Amino acid sequence: MDINEKRTTNRDDSQMVPQPVKDKTGLVQVDTTWGKIQPIKIADGVRTVDEIELNYSLEKGMQVIDGRTPDFYKVSTIPGAKNIPYNEVVDRMNELNRDEPAIFFCNGPQCPQSPSAIRNLLEAGYPPNKILYYRGGMHDWVTLGLPVEKGK
């Protein structure tokens, strides 16, 4: 049986990014019903990274790409991330610096947006060793209490 068939049924009003609980500093509400669980490994040659490596990369000024649609990005993103939506990434490949890896993320382990962006880039001939995948996305980033900012 597919693991996604074991999950709680999707809610009609899903909440893809964990939200703060009013008057409860450090407490967030998580919706476990949306999306489909994505694999840890997206493709051969594409390495998956964690929050520690992502933080290090941000501190070094490396490119971090928020692959979500602009409506999500404008509400909140990881500080320092650039928005290139998954459905525009091939047309905007020239915005990526091919001299260094780019880290792609989306809403979390059950979100298909950055995996789609990565697969689309690979199909367009982008080198897999220049793509990194932060599977945890906004979901894990927020639930670990890490900072977010409104997208520019």
Score class of each variant (00 low, 15 high):
S14L: 05
I3E: 14
V148I: 15
Y126P: 13
Q113M: 12
A102D: 04
P70R: 04
V64W: 10
I118D: 00
Q110W: 06
K150P: 07
Q63K: 13
D44P: 04
R119E: 02
I103V: 13
P79H: 13
E88Q: 14
L132N: 05
N120Q: 10
Y73H: 14
Q29Y: 09
F72N: 12
P70V: 09
P79S: 12
S57T: 06
P128V: 03
H139W: 10
F105Q: 12
I65P: 11
V142E: 06
R7T: 10
L58P: 01
Y134E: 10
G35I: 00
D91I: 04
K41F: 10
A117V: 01
G151R: 05
R119H: 01
Y134I: 10
D23N: 15
P128D: 07
G108H: 02
Y133S: 13
A117C: 01
D23M: 06
C111V: 02
V148N: 03
F104Q: 07
G125S: 10
L121Q: 00
P85I: 04
M138T: 08
E53Y: 09
D99Q: 11
N87V: 00
L96N: 08
G136Y: 07
P128Q: 05
P109N: 11
T143K: 03
G145W: 04
S76P: 03
R11N: 10
D99S: 14
A124Y: 02
V46K: 01
N129H: 09
P101Y: 08
Q113N: 10
N4L: 13
E123N: 07
M62A: 14
V28R: 06
Q110V: 08
G61H: 12
Y133T: 12
N94Q: 13
F105S: 14
P20Y: 06
E95Y: 03
A124E: 03
P85Y: 09
T69A: 15
V75M: 05
E88F: 08
I40R: 12
P79N: 11
L122P: 02
R135Y: 08
T69W: 02
T33H: 03
I52W: 02
E123Y: 00
V90F: 01
V75H: 01
N94K: 08
R98A: 15
P39F: 14
N94Y: 13
Q29S: 09
P39D: 15
P39E: 15
G137Y: 01
P127Y: 08
Q63G: 15
P101C: 06
W34K: 01
P115Y: 10
S57C: 05
